[in-house]
């Protein structure tokens, strides 16, 4: 046998085998503890809802927390102040409290109009210095509630795009709060808007589709 050829096999230890040390008591104790814990953990889950998903609680559908779902139809806005508060992401949903306009703006509007209200040049109109926003309250309410489509000139620049409607997503109070916020930020100085103005708007126009700049001028006059 050529030792050189087998040197690696030659120098190594034998094939491994096992000793016969007994299982330590502490391992057995640990197994016992885990079994007891496992039974307890199962028992703790007894009575939890079987449908819907893991760790679902009834909180999920507590009043005013079912999110946009309960404002699918226009009449849902009677629960103003609470309905749809979740969709705002503002976490301000406790009934009766005044919605936080800044938080709603941050969650719903800032993606396009940006946190500083400057919009995105060429794509999303600025709110800072916007003549439409600071016009008579009826105009911004109409735009945000029903949406807007088509060409529009804002602060000297022309924009072509789609503003989605928030009528089904925000309650009257939230809509008023976010508009009031935008009308007083970034150098804007227009009056606050009252939830009643939103309610009036709804009464007058019902469930109407998008506005266009021309229609707005026709109905409400020049901004």
């Amino acid at each position: 046998m050529n030792q050189h050829d087998h040197r690696a096999q030659y120098r190594e230890a034998p094939e491994p085998e096992e000793g016969t040390r007994a299982i330590p008591k502490i391992v057995l104790a640990w197994i016992a503890i885990l079994i007891v814990w496992g039974v307890g953990y199962y028992a703790w889950q007894i009575g939890k809802p079987l449908l819907g998903g893991d760790s679902r609680t009834a909180v999920a559908m507590a009043p005013g927390e079912s999110g946009p779902a309960n404002s699918e139809s226009p009449d849902a806005s009677e629960g103003s102040g609470t309905s749809g508060s979740q969709s705002s992401g503002a976490g301000s949903g406790s009934a009766g409290a005044t919605p936080d306009g800044a938080a709603i703006y941050s969650a719903q509007c800032s993606a396009c109009h940006q946190a500083n209200g400057q919009g995105v040049p060429g794509a999303f109109p600025p709110l800072a210095g916007s003549e439409w926003l600071q016009a008579d309250a009826a105009i911004p309410v109409a735009i945000v509630h029903d949406g807007l489509q088509g060409e529009i000139e804002v602060a000297g620049n022309t924009f072509q795009g789609v503003m989605p409607r928030f009528g089904g997503k925000l309650s009257d109070a939230e809509l008023a709060a976010v508009l009031s916020y935008a009308r007083s930020e970034w150098g804007n100085s227009a009056s606050e808007i009252d939830p009643a103005t939103v309610a009036e708007h709804k009464e007058r126009f019902g469930d109407r589709g998008d506005w266009s700049a021309g229609e707005l001028k026709e109905v409400f006059g020049e901004p």
Partner: peptide, 20 residues
Amino acid sequence: YYMIPKILGKPIISYQLSLI
């Protein structure tokens, strides 16, 4: 399980624990 006892040249300490 192979390499440790192989390099050390000593058996794995417990067959019972291996089974569990």
